[in-house]
Amino acid sequence: MRFVTWNINSVRLRIDLLRHLVEETDPDVVLLQETKVQDKDFPVAALQDLGLTHSLFRGIKSYNGVAVLSKHPLAEPGGHHWAGREDARHVLATLPNGVEVHSLYVPAGGDEPDPAVNDKFRHKLDFVDEMKSWFPANRDPKRPILLAGDLNIAPLESDVWSHKQLLKVVSHTPVETEGLTAAQEAFGWTDAMRTLTPAPERLYTWWSYRAKDWRKADRGRRLDHVWLSPGLDGTLRHMSVLEDARGWEKPSDHAPVIVDLDV
Rank of each mutant, 00 (worst) to 15 (best):
Y63T: 12
L69W: 01
G84N: 09
E24M: 08
L17F: 01
G65F: 05
I15L: 14
T35Y: 02
P73F: 03
D16H: 12
H81G: 08
S10H: 06
A93V: 10
V66D: 15
D39H: 14
K61H: 04
H90L: 05
V29G: 14
L56M: 04
L18N: 04
V44R: 09
L92Y: 14
H20N: 12
R89H: 12
R19V: 04
P73C: 02
L74K: 10
K40Q: 12
H20M: 13
V66A: 15
L32Q: 13
G78N: 01
D39W: 10
T25V: 15
N9I: 01
Q48V: 02
W6Q: 07
R58N: 05
G79A: 01
H80N: 02
D26Q: 03
L56F: 10
V91P: 07
P77Y: 03
G65A: 03
R85M: 14
P27T: 09
P77C: 03
I60L: 11
V22C: 14
W6L: 05
D26N: 03
E86A: 14
A75V: 00
L69Q: 00
A83L: 02
L50K: 13
I8L: 00
R85I: 12
N9G: 06
N9C: 07
V37Q: 05
D16C: 01
L74H: 10
I8E: 02
F57S: 09
S70N: 09
E23W: 00
L92C: 13
E76V: 04
E34T: 10
R58G: 04
V68I: 15
L31T: 13
Q38H: 08
G84W: 07
L31A: 15
T5V: 05
L74F: 06
G51I: 08
S55D: 00
A88G: 10
E24N: 11
D41C: 04
L31K: 14
I15H: 09
L69S: 02
G84Q: 08
V44D: 05
A88Y: 12
N7A: 01
L69C: 02
E76A: 11
V4D: 07
T5W: 07
R89G: 10
V44P: 00
L52W: 10
D87I: 13
A67I: 00
V37D: 06
K40V: 08
I8S: 00
V66L: 15
A75F: 05
L32N: 14
H90C: 05
V29A: 14
G59D: 05
G84T: 06
A93N: 12
V66G: 15
H90D: 11
E86R: 12
L74G: 09
H20C: 10
G84M: 06
E24I: 02
L13V: 12
Q38Y: 02
A45H: 12
A75G: 06
V11Q: 03
K40D: 14
W6P: 11
D16V: 00
L50Y: 14
I15D: 06
W6Y: 13
R19T: 13
L56V: 06
T35E: 01
D87R: 13
Q48E: 08
T5P: 09
Q38I: 05
N7H: 02
